[in-house]
Design a protein around this nucleic acid. Structure first.
Lengths: 192, 192
DNA sequence: TCGATACCATACGCATGAGTATGGATTGCG
DNA sequence: CGCAATCCATACTCATGCGTATGGTATCGA
């Protein structure tokens, strides 16, 4: 998918606009999603945009749905295929911690939870991830209630971390220190 | 301070505008901070505003500084005065959990971390709170490194919780279930 | 009481960004 | 080749929201 990134001077499709929109959202947030700005970045004008989309709102909607679909998927299935349930949590934590790039859109959308269009998307995505986490905690030995609460705690820590490090650049943590933090988190949040 | 909320028809001061601004920020976020909207809400027009402030930016700056000063303060000193260090963490968690109203501004500012004016404020506030948490963890028996990481984890969980429940309304948790969650969090994050 | 200062209303200018109208260029296809 | 679609540029309109100019009203001290 997407054969032309920027240099090729072929004509654009709706998907190109959606990809560019997601890129811009990841970089500058949902508020910065302006059609004329996007057009400049793509080397065209508004005239092009309004052929592919009826409105700016429609672009945002399409981009969000695109992100929701082709979002994670792989990570979940790979983790689920691991034989030892107790080994899944550490593996999940380390993976997510070391692949922060794909989470930049999520972090940006987190800051736009007042926007009516992003709320339902974030609600669905967060809900799915929470359920996944709860299942893993159950398989790791926690009872139903404990697993749910631990999943809430874990996911909150994940969300909070994104906020505090991506956008806000708290005392720019070093690479080694970050690894130590991840291991600390694993020890603290993994059952026994 | 502030003798007239809305009904009294006395004339306004700069502080009235700042309070109204903070209220609006807590309700609708930083983006919604418009001077004509604020003026309508206060029953006056722009003409009033631009007598007290040179620009919209100046108002935001003043409101942020006001919030940073008269923000928390009390909680920290009260917790610090508790004799038993091990009892401080549970008490802190329960207090924060049950007084979420004062944290609405913080939650709103969290969603505006792309705004250059709020970043330094949030950096300072978060930094202070983190250091406070780290100290408490040390006094509770953790060594330096562990205390810092545990503080990071705890504060991230706090921040994430604000996002997931204030703005996003994840499966609207019940009151009893919320208490259970808080107790679970205390058991999980408090040393031994 | 009366003038100076503090506070506010009205009426502007001006920039930005969404959306429309319309015509030109390019491509696939018969 | 040639004619439809498809894709894009240019040139507008329109609403919003910041900031300014200027004049009016209230309030307080001398």
């Amino acid at each position: 998918m997407n054969a032309s990134a920027k240099p090729e001077r072929t004509r654009l499709s709706a998907e190109d606009w959606e990809d560019a929109a997601l890129k811009l959202i990841a970089d500058q947030g949902v508020n910065a999603l302006a059609v004329e700005a996007l057009a400049r970045q793509l080397g065209v004008t508004k005239g092009s945009f309004y052929w592919h989309f009826r409105t700016r709102e429609a672009l945002l909607q399409a981009a969000l749905e695109r992100w929701e679909q082709y979002g994670e998927r792989e990570v979940i299935s790979q983790i689920e295929s691991m034989p030892d349930p107790r080994a899944r949590l550490p593996e999940l934590f380390r993976r997510v911690a070391h692949e922060l790039a794909p989470h930049r859109v999520y972090a940006a959308l987190l800051k736009a939870l007042d926007h009516p269009q992003v709320v339902p998307v974030m609600a669905r995505v967060s809900q799915r991830r929470m359920e996944f986490l709860t299942t893993i905690y159950r398989e790791a030995g926690l009872d139903s209630q404990e697993a749910l609460n631990r999943a809430r705690l874990t996911y909150a820590a994940y969300v909070g971390f994104l906020q505090l490090n991506f956008t806000l650049g708290l005392p720019r943590i070093s690479h080694d220190e970050f690894d130590a933090y991840v291991e600390h988190m694993i020890r603290t949040l993994t059952p026994n």
